[in-house]
Design a binder for these strands. Structure first.
Length: 278
DNA sequence: CATTTCACCTGGTGGC
DNA sequence: TGCCACCAGGTGAAAT
């Protein structure tokens, strides 16, 4: 489901609800694919630690953990990737447990943190920052909200792949997925199939600004709820109402009324306006 | 190395 | 109603 705005919304919501709380115990399901770190190690590492803060990096939700609430610096991290259908919810223990719940974390406040993921493309990882060779989590790519014009242009001007494929590459920019790639290319007036290295400086800068504006706007609206995305409280977002091209195949372009086209690119459904995007 | 394709999963939707 | 094909917000391994 979730791209940068959705992950940001979830991370903020979870942070608001669990920051400062202490983990009593953690339960994990038995689907091995879900765990980047063995579940027994995750449960052991989480138990007794305090959640110092929760934030987003790329499409990852990072829990900064300390041995006690007064800890100056985190000594461990719990990292959640929502994949396509993952949900991270703060619930009360009496709330019914949804199918495909792969993790339940009991908090001292009485709340419970739950990870639910039908398609199991999501991943859970625990990192001990004091262990040998265990470094803090870093997204491989740059942050789309803060990257500057020069660095942005450098990322794309050497690539021969289609600009949309480059936008989806998390080791270049971290956080852009299919919705916001299509929407930002529409806003910038650029066809998804254009080769990255054929875009001129003005086009690349239009794209950077369009991407930033759209991501910030989507965060303000709580993300896009296309099929099943909800935030930490189980609430839908509203940015899907403002999509210009994503999943609007055949519908009139909001700018010129031409029917929106759908093609396949980089194995993903790709939507664009043949008139507004060149 | 850069780029492209495909497998990994379940569930919802729309056509017949 | 039932069955089936197709589609889905992501990623990383394998192939080219």
């Amino acid at each position: 489901m979730p791209e940068l705005p959705e992950v940001e919304t979830v991370a903020r919501g979870v942070n608001r609800r669990v920051r400062g709380d202490r983990i009593v115990q953690a339960w994990f399901g038995k689907r091995p694919q879900t765990f980047k770190t063995p579940p027994s190690r995750q449960a052991k590492g989480l138990a007794g630690r305090t959640i110092l803060a929760v934030h987003r990096t790329g499409k990852h939700i990072v829990f900064e953990l300390g041995a006690e609430a007064s800890a100056a610096a985190p000594d461990a991290q719990w990292i959640v990737h929502l994949g396509m259908t993952g949900r991270l919810l703060v619930a009360t223990p009496d709330a019914p447990v949804a199918p495909h719940t792969h993790a339940r974390i009991d908090l001292a406040s009485g709340n419970e943190l739950r990870f639910v993921d039908p398609r199991r493309f999501g991943r859970l990882e625990f990192r001990n920052l004091r262990g040998k060779g265990d470094a803090a989590f870093e997204a491989p790519g740059a942050e789309p909200l803060t990257i500057g014009a020069v660095a942005f242009a450098e990322l794309f001007s050497q690539r021969k792949m289609p600009i949309k494929a480059a936008l989806l590459n998390q080791s270049l920019l971290a956080g852009v997925g299919n919705i916001y790639a299509d929407e930002s290319l529409f806003q910038a007036g650029i066809r998804p199939r254009r080769r990255s290295n054929r875009l001129n400086a003005a086009e690349l800068e239009r794209l950077r600004l369009a991407l930033r504006q759209i991501l910030l706007h989507a965060i303000r609206l709580g993300g896009s709820s296309v099929s099943d995305y909800v935030d930490a409280e189980g609430e839908s977002g509203f940015f899907q109402l403002e999509h210009c091209v994503y999943q609007r195949t055949g519908e009139p372009c909001r700018r010129c009324q031409t029917p929106i086209r759908r093609i396949e690119l980089a194995g993903r459904g790709t939507h664009y306006c043949p008139i507004c995007q060149r």
